[in-house]
Design a protein around this nucleic acid. Structure first.
Lengths: 249, 249
DNA sequence: GGACACGTTGCGCCCAGTGCAACGGCTGCC
DNA sequence: GGCAGCCGTTGCACTGGGCGCAACGTGTCC
C-alpha cells in the first residue's frame, strides 16, 4: 500500500537472512543505497535494526520486546497458563500451546518435560503445517473451502518417512481429526517424537488454539501417549470453559 | 528520518499497549484515520500487525519469527549454549545469558532450574538496569563517561527495599563489579531471588555478554550462591575463549 | 427509521521520499 | 607513500507518492 513503509519492512525481513552492509541491503530490495540508508536509519532509531561495530546492519532488540508483548496480548495464553502447568505437572511431558494466524501455526507457550530427553522447540517457532498434531487440530477447524485452499497451496516436505505428502491425504486426515476431536503425529515430523493435540474453543465454538503433549518415543510409546488424550481433553475443556465465560472487553 | 516509516513504527509500538481500533490507533499518533489505515494495511500485509475479527488491530505473528531469527543471529548465543547447558546440568539452577544493546539489557537465553520454585523471566525480557546482576556486569564495562551518562539518565525504581536508588550508588557498585570481576543481586529486584553474574568477553577483551545463576532464597541462600561463582567464572571463560578463537566472518 | 459511529474510498494538493552525483574516509595494492 | 577503488554519507532538484479532506456505505443503537 504505502511504498516507503513497504520497502522498510522488506528490508527488515531481508535482514533475517543475516547481517548486511548498506549496499547489500540496498541491492536486496533494489533501491538506491541512499534510499536504503534513510530507511535503515529510521528502523535503527526505533531499535528494530542494530548497527554492528563493522557498520553492518542486523535485526535489533526491539523485536524481542515487541514479540514478548505480542505474546502477552494473546489472552488465551493467560487463561491457559495455569491449566497447562497443572497438566505438565501431572504427566511430566512437554506441553505446547499453539495458535493459527494467517496461514501459520505458531507455538505461543511451552512447558518443558521433566524427562532428561527434551525436544527442540521454542516459543515463537512455527509448527509444521503438514505434520504436527497442533497444526492438524487448527487446520481441521477451518471452513471446508479454506481448508482445501490451504492444503493445495502447501508444500509437503518429507520430514520423515511417515510424513503426509499430498493435499488429499492431509484433507482426509483433517476430516478424521474433526470427527474424533483430537490429532496425533506419529513420527511425522521428527523420527523420534510423537504428539497428541486437542482443540481449545472460544465463546463461539470456533477453535482458537491447540494444546499438545509431545514425547520422545524412547520415553513413551504411542500407546502410552494415546492414554493421555483424556487428560489432555480435560485440560482443553477447562481452558475453553474459562475462556468462553469471560466477556471480551 | 523518513516520516512515513517513522509513523508506521510508532503505530506498531503503540499496539504494544494493547489492541486498538483504526480511530484509536490514528489518535495515538496524531494522524488522520485514512493515513493510519494505509500504514496499518501495509504492516498487516507483512504480518507485523494482525486484524482481529472485531476489526481491531493487534501485534502480528511475524514479530515472533523475526525475533527468533534475530536471536539466532547473535552468535555468542550459539557458542555459549553448550557451556550454559553444562553449567545448568551441574548446579541445577536457572541460568541466564544477557546482552547489552543501545541502552537495554536483554535476556537472550535461559535454562530452567531443576528445582520446583522457578522465577519469572523469559527470553526477550529486558533486565532491570539498576538491579539485576547481568545489567551490572554489562554496564560496568562501558567507558567511564558513557557509564556516568547512562546512570544519570536512569530511573531508580524501588523494586525492593534493597534496590539501588541513586546514580552515585550505582556507579560505586559498578566500580566494584569492575574490580572483582563479577556482580551480585541480593534481593534487589525480587524480594525472594538472588543472582550472581559474570562477564563473557570478545576477542578484543570487551564484555559482549553476561551469564548468571539465579536462585530463590528458599532454595539457596546468598552464601551458597557465592560459592557457585568459581563455576560460573569457569563457564564464562570457556565461552570467551571459544568465542575469541573464532574469526569474525 | 433516523442518527450516529466507524471503516472505506476517490481526489487533488504539495511535501517528503527518491535517485543522482559529488564528497570523504578507509583499505590495500603496486 | 601515493593512487585507485570501495563504501558510507550528504546536498540537491524533481516529481511521484503520501497526505488530509470529504463523501460514501454499512452496521448498530435508541
Amino acid at each position: 500500500m504505502t511504498q516507503t513503509v513497504d520497502r522498510a519492512l522488506v528490508i527488515l525481513a531481508s535482514l533475517a537472512e543475516g547481517p548486511a552492509s548498506l549496499e547489500q541491503a540496498a541491492n536486496r530490495i533494489g533501491v538506491h543505497k541512499s534510499t536504503a540508508m534513510r530507511l535503515l536509519r529510521t528502523l535503527e532509531e526505533h531499535g528494530f535494526v542494530h548497527r554492528q561495530p563493522d557498520y553492518r546492519y542486523r535485526l535489533g532488540g526491539r523485536l524481542f520486546s515487541l514479540a514478548q508483548l505480542a505474546l502477552e496480548s494473546i489472552d488465551v495464553r493467560v487463561v491457559a497458563a495455569p491449566h497447562l502447568a497443572a497438566l505438565n505437572e501431572r504427566c511430566g511431558h512437554t506441553v505446547h500451546l499453539a495458535v493459527y494466524e494467517d496461514g501459520e501455526v505458531t507455538y505461543v507457550d511451552k512447558l518443558e518435560s521433566r524427562y532428561p530427553v527434551r525436544m527442540y522447540s521454542r516459543i515463537g517457532k512455527r509448527a509444521a503445517l503438514t505434520a504436527s498434531a497442533v497444526a492438524k487440530v487448527l487446520l481441521a477447524d477451518l471452513p471446508e473451502a479454506r481448508r482445501r485452499e490451504v492444503a493445495e497451496a502447501l508444500e509437503f516436505p518429507a520430514y520423515t518417512v511417515r510424513s503426509i505428502r499430498t493435499p488429499e491425504a492431509l484433507l482426509e486426515e483433517l476430516a478424521q481429526v474433526r470427527d474424533q476431536g483430537w490429532a496425533v503425529d506419529r513420527s511425522e515430523y521428527e523420527e523420534t517424537v510423537n504428539c497428541v493435540a486437542v482443540p481449545i474453543r472460544g465463546i463461539d465454538g470456533r477453535v482458537i488454539a491447540a494444546c499438545s503433549i509431545s514425547t520422545p518415543t524412547v520415553v513413551a510409546p504411542i500407546g502410552t501417549l494415546r492414554r493421555l488424550v483424556p487428560q489432555l481433553l480435560d485440560t482443553a475443556e477447562a481452558v475453553s470453559l474459562e475462556y468462553g465465560g469471560r466477556t471480551r472487553s
